[in-house]
Write a protein that binds this DNA or RNA. Sequence first.
DNA 1: CATCATACGGCACTCGTTTGCAGTATTTGC
DNA 2: GCAAATACTGCAAACGAGTGCCGTATGATG
Lengths: 344, 344
Amino acid sequence: MLSSVTLREVADEAGVHYSTASRALNPATRSIVNAKTAKKVLAAAERLGYRPHPLARGLRTNRTLTIGMAVPDLLNPVFPQLYAGAEASLRDQGYWLLVGAGDDCGTPKSASRILIDQHVDGLIVANAHIHSTLPQNPTNQTAPTVLVNRTTDTIDAPSVACDDHAGIGLVVRHLVELGHTDIAHIAGPQFISNGVIRRQAFVAWMHSSGLETPPELIVETDGFHIDEGRRACERLLDSGARFTAIVGANDLMALGCYDVLAERGIRVPHDVSVTGFDDMAYIDRVHPAMTTVSVPFYEMGALAGEVMLTLLTSEDSGAGTLPTSTRLRPHLEVRDSTAPPAVS
Amino acid sequence: MLSSVTLREVADEAGVHYSTASRALNPATRSIVNAKTAKKVLAAAERLGYRPHPLARGLRTNRTLTIGMAVPDLLNPVFPQLYAGAEASLRDQGYWLLVGAGDDCGTPKSASRILIDQHVDGLIVANAHIHSTLPQNPTNQTAPTVLVNRTTDTIDAPSVACDDHAGIGLVVRHLVELGHTDIAHIAGPQFISNGVIRRQAFVAWMHSSGLETPPELIVETDGFHIDEGRRACERLLDSGARFTAIVGANDLMALGCYDVLAERGIRVPHDVSVTGFDDMAYIDRVHPAMTTVSVPFYEMGALAGEVMLTLLTSEDSGAGTLPTSTRLRPHLEVRDSTAPPAVS
DNA sequence: CATCATACGGCACTCGTTTGCAGTATTTGC
DNA sequence: GCAAATACTGCAAACGAGTGCCGTATGATG
């Protein structure tokens, strides 16, 4: 289906051999052919509406102009933002972004599928297990990879993420300034870098504020979802531990806290303050509007795309790849879910 | 980069010619080769971790196992849902879904780009202008196309959408039953089918309820976004017309109404009831929780994927394509943004 | 006018797979 | 045991574009 116009037809139209047409059409080799001939070929191509066949070209050049992006969950509004940013910067350079969604952060399965079965030129990974290895083909070769929003211990690849440590600092300081001392943390899964880093940051900032972090006030979850937040909040309340604020490791889990607290008649922020992380879309419209750490996801995605592009060109030029790790500055959005602790 | 193991290597490993290996590997042609030989080849392929080269295969068969999906705006949570549904049903059959996001509902530019530059086998279009034509290549050929969530006057392609007429009926009846008589409508853009159909449905249902629809109570917008909803609501209020309820053509525009009404000290639902359409993610958590028409977007996407698959197979078998138009039943979600009109 | 240097265009092979066709084993029937 | 039919398998030609290499045409120069 859809047989488009081929290079030979362009060449015939222009009255030259198709190899000449090929060179004329390719900006990199255009200088080889006579300027007049090139002009003729370009005109013919324009007239016929020639578009190079992407498969044929890819087969020959071994480049598909396609980048794969592995995300855990498109329904979390954070990832469409990441996607949009990356897509914008890649499209500028003629690249396509192919998204593969799948929750399997543990295995590099989805990434591997996208990498091998689609022959992408590079991979932007947003769902890395903290100990995951790079997806490889059986001959142990790999493709240029950029980690975004997540990092790993084990992969030596450039990453673009948020300065989670600073972000947690923002909320902890905010709560401390409000007068809170008994602060709980709903930690993310400890097999994902964000979960680990935010947890460690929470402990560090609490201690540097002279506050305790008793183990019963830190609850770990198995995923950054609303349900996990619910379960964690229930565990927290059922433990009987006293606290006046909850620092959620992301917005969705904080939303889960909202639900459980409401069910039990605990008012936010009057009885308990709640903070999130991400500043996902529409989180400023929930009730009460959530105080959270705003992460520039679009910019993060755009930057990841640019890093990918430099990776691709440096690979072409044979220069040694220089994995850089960038962390973007978040900022605090103070809304209505935080207040001074009630005097008891 | 990423040179994977090739068919010839598998054939060598199995000690057969590579054409034989090809036949053994392809389930459709496997019956041609000797069962023992096939077994040998399969084992060799397994051992070497062979994956067919997608570009080479696509070049030869003229099928890429990739479907393109054109959506207007990934940041509207509705479209990730559509995507997820379609992706799920297509992946089952080994197909990939490549999303192209772009607001250009008017031109089939993005669709055409995705169609020609990526050589997709089919196109799922979720951003059709009501008068748009199918994207074509210069030789006037086109690819199997399924419209989803939108329809057009001009394209004779199968479509999967929501029964908007019935959906609007649900909210209008709901408001009428609450006692509202002066009901306004924030209509979507009239170059998009949803905008037109919901507007017509609003007028029809109002009339069948014996109610008037004065022109000043229907405001059209230029896009299904929050900002457009804001502007429309301002126009509505500034017109001085009296009304006790607003039927928004989608949730985002209804959110825009929330904002303007709040700024002007008009309480929802006490002073004015507001309804949305779509039941997008997290709209049950805004304040007040929005009464809206729930549309099964995931199922819609999944169905679109299945329709696409039947289209592809019917094309193979040469059977005339049978464009069907499916409309999924929505249901009403009554929440806190609607109430009886205040007695004045 | 002859020779050489240069610039340009054409030939042919390549990427990895599918597939029509022909050829060769192998079996079956008599 | 021989012929014919069958069942496999191998050969080679595609698909469309890119590119090293060689031949030729063109120009310049002595």
